[in-house]
Amino acid sequence: MGINNTPEIPADFPGKVIPAGNGANVIVTSLDQIINWGRSNSLWSLYFGTSCCAIEMMQTGAAKHDYSRFGFEVARPSPRQADLIIIAGTIVNKMAPVLRRLYDQMAEPKYVIAMGACAISGGPFFYNSYSVVKGADHVIPVDVYVPGCPPRPEALLEGMLMLQAKIRTESMKNKIFPIDGFDEGL
């Protein structure tokens, strides 16, 4: 797909890097292939847009760039029926517990895409603001980051396809839930 899936990790990186695909080995069994094929091609996302990136997410769902051709057919309003949260917009101190509760209400397997500069690191509101959470990954674990302010619909589609590629390398035997150990700060 033209994406280099083995990034270089700098020597002073402060966190622990979990290899993509939940630590799977290169060989994926055929049962895993079928299950991953089913999971990756029918991810239904939750209606969660807080600010300007939500408009670009709505444009991605509209007629010109259509995300339902890749399987993301409908956006569900209820978290219990969704597999994917696309965090489109800034997360504020007052909204962070709500986001965490929505994530906890979703059923496994669940994935998160952080869309836009505000969800990645606070964006244009990083300096001098007393109420913005500097990045949604302080609240829930994120799988794919899509940069831009706001990102073009094509950029969001590339992020969604990258997530699909990541799901295809998962394995049922060595399953790691990204939420384990998240609150303790891994």
Binding site: T90, V92, K94, V98, F125, N128, S129, S131
Partner: peptide, 10 residues
């Protein structure tokens, strides 16, 4: 207040 980004203070 769920999207109050303190623009006036910034």
């Amino acid at each position: 207040g769920y999207i109050h980004r303190s623009i006036e203070k910034m």
